[in-house]
């Protein structure tokens, strides 16, 4: 590690200025690649089993367009507002950054609320994890995504607290940027859940 490895590059956005930060961000991308592989196994399981409904309801009987669309729009908009938070951060505007992160959190909490309501509704209709192979793989796939969103909400709250305590530095900027990558990634996974679970389930 020479001098160049530790250089502080003023021309870069705040989150990229130290070599450590650049490596942290690259490392997080590699983690996201592993997450893609994790979700791929869950999608594979679901798509192999989703027509094995046993004596339980089928996907077409269970899913409601309106509920799915509300969840989709909440998460998509939260991904957009999270992007705006980074946009504000790169302009050096702390207040805009915090405000958009809070909006993102609210939309994320709204998404989780609607998802929990959807799950509770299914369970009341007798569609539980134990009902059929379709529902086991459905709850594992969509539930794993929901758990990721919940973790993202907790993580983002902690990052906001740190921002308020320490201000916008090269280190906190990198942390905000990484949590934003995680948040956008959750919407990337949701696009495929929307398409391959809900739309496909309502068509077949």
């Amino acid at each position: 590690m020479g001098e160049a490895a530790h250089r502080y590059d003023e021309t870069m956005p705040l989150e990229y200025r130290t070599q450590e930060s650049r490596l942290n961000i690259l490392g997080f991308w590699i983690f996201l690649g592993a997450e893609v592989a994790l979700f791929a196994t869950l999608f594979a399981t679901y798509l192999v089993l989703f027509q094995r409904t046993g004596s339980g309801p089928t996907a077409g009987e269970l899913f409601e367009v309106k509920d799915v669309l509300i969840e989709t729009l909440l998460l998509l908009t939260s991904s957009f507002t999270c992007g705006l938070a980074i946009f504000e951060m790169r302009r050096g505007r702390m207040s805009g950054l915090i405000a958009w992160l809070l909006v993102t959190l609210l939309l994320g909490a709204g998404f989780i609320t609607f998802e929990l309501r959807e799950f509770i509704h299914y369970v009341h209709e007798g569609a539980t994890m134990q009902t059929s192979a379709f529902l086991s793989s459905f709850f594992v796939l969509v539930g794993t995504h929901g758990a990721h969103v919940s973790l993202g909400i907790a993580w983002m709250i902690l990052i906001i607290i740190q921002l308020l305590q320490r201000g916008l530095t090269a280190k906190t900027a990198r942390k905000v940027f990484i949590v934003s990558l995680y948040w956008h990634f959750l919407d990337v996974v949701w696009i495929f859940i929307f398409t391959l679970v809900y739309l496909l389930g309502m068509v077949i």
Binding site: W29, A34, V36, A37, A40, F43, A44, L47, V48
Partner: peptide, 20 residues
């Protein structure tokens, strides 16, 4: 980063399409 994500999507397609 771009190649890492492209490779992970390739793995995802192989796992999903291969399983089906």
């Amino acid at each position: 980063q771009t190649f890492n994500m492209m490779y992970s999507f390739f793995i995802a397609v192989v796992v999903v399409a291969g399983s089906i």
